[in-house]
Design a protein around this nucleic acid. Structure first.
Lengths: 245, 245
DNA sequence: CGATCAATTGAGTGTGTTCAATGTCAGTGG
DNA sequence: CCACTGACATTGAACACACTCAATTGATCG
């Protein structure tokens, strides 16, 4: 968090620019739009930040008005289970859209919490819908995004249910590596965990203890190395392969 | 299947009519559209059926072109896990839209299989997108649908992971009852299972044996009665209550 | 430097799985 | 009509894996 070479030292001027000059655009809804269309998008978004670690972008039961897109940083969404435990539903990285679960609902369904210094674009949903009427490409993109999201959920959650803990964990590490690649434009064999192990465990449907043991198992099999907030992936092919075990 | 009073004896003329006179419309994307807008929708849909039990509406890896809406009947979607088992991802009832997971993908992600005599409306997606450009209400409705779907997935799958088998089962029965109410316009305390117990087990992330035992437990607690393909809900309030156990 | 929260480790328990056997039912053909 | 078949459903016993609870270590911060 205080590593001066870290990507987290975001240049403030980068965060101030609109969609047209946005460094994150290739990942975002604006990808593939022409100048004029980008201007339209730029008119309705508001850039918000910096959020500090632990700060909420929105909270459960707040009125739903906007989607959010991550410019820089990381966000988790979490809700409360029947038993009263916190339950992490998702992690969101640069370029990811969050808040979509609230569409059609009066209020947000989760808390959205920054996991590090984070900047987001607020996208008022009603205005966005109107804009989609005039920019077919934008309508198309949001639909693609919905489809993607459903596929991802299905892949990770539904299929995850009939996988072993280690398989699920490897799937998660795979996802983290991909996101790192997208952000850094280079392949990394080491992943910085901005979230706590407890959050990861919750996301994977596990107790923290079980996650800890699973990490140790993968380490003993020579696939990863686990030092605290950093996980080295030693055997990239094992983690990357779709069929594991 | 041959019960003469059954809802499954669908009147053929009902199935032949377009959107304007559709008996299912109140459940469908067309809900709330005016005559002219309905005509637009009607122009692009194709009514397909009857599909017999076990017949596929589409199959994994077939080219994705259309969404489907159920006019009458029931459909399951299933994919194949890494280990090669069939995995039921969803059940769809009258008025439900399926095929959405394939949006943005070249091919379908699942098999969609009829669980009884079934009629569907095929909705070519590209044409649908174009239509949405001219009918804001339709664009809005599909977005609502996406949001709903995500919320439902989150509720049932993510939260399901930290529930006991019995809780998940009760959640499933609750869902079935709601769907029955929608279809029959009356509250029923008895649900006909068109899917096999194996399908239900798969959907709930269980082995058939575990489902069987869970049903027996609920029965021994006086909450349901389990006779083969029919489940009587004796204690509706227990099944309906959000907080159980 | 304690204080606090996160992460790890160990021992014992419990829930769902696995495997194998049995029961039920609908459809088929002698 | 009844025996046979095959798919689905149920039951039991033994097991495995993740959970629970409790103690310890490690990291972070005022």
């Amino acid at each position: 968090m205080r590593d001066p070479a870290s990507k987290k030292d975001v240049a403030l001027e980068d965060m101030a620019s609109g969609c047209v000059g946005c460094v994150t655009r290739s990942l975002c809804l604006g990808e593939g739009l022409n100048q004029q269309q980008l201007k339209g998008l730029e008119r309705i978004i508001t850039i918000r930040g910096p959020y500090r670690t632990g700060q909420a972008i929105y909270r459960l039961e707040e009125r739903f008005n906007s989607l959010f897109i991550i410019r820089a940083g990381t966000v988790k969404t979490e809700s409360v289970s029947q038993e009263g435990n916190n339950l992490v539903d998702g992690f969101f990285f640069q370029g990811d859209v969050f808040g979509m679960e609230a569409i059609g609902s009066a209020t947000y369904e989760h808390d959205a919490v920054a996991l590090e210094e984070t900047w987001v674009c607020e996208l008022p949903f009603e205005q966005f819908e109107s804009l989609c009427q005039f920019v077919p490409r934008l309508q198309h993109k949001i639909m693609l995004l919905f489809g993607q999201k459903m596929r991802h959920t299905n892949q990770s959650i539904v299929h995850g249910r009939c996988q072993s803990v280690e398989q699920r964990l490897m799937g998660f590490l795979r996802m983290l590596c991909q996101k790192s690649v997208l952000q850094d434009e280079k392949c990394r064999s080491s992943v910085q965990l901005v979230m706590t192990k407890g959050d990861i465990a919750s996301y994977l449907g596990l107790r923290p203890e079980s996650l800890s043991r699973a990490l140790r198992k993968l380490q003993s099999r020579g696939i990863i190395r686990n030092h605290g907030k950093r996980v080295e992936v030693l055997n990239v092919s094992a983690v990357s392969s779709e069929v594991c075990k």
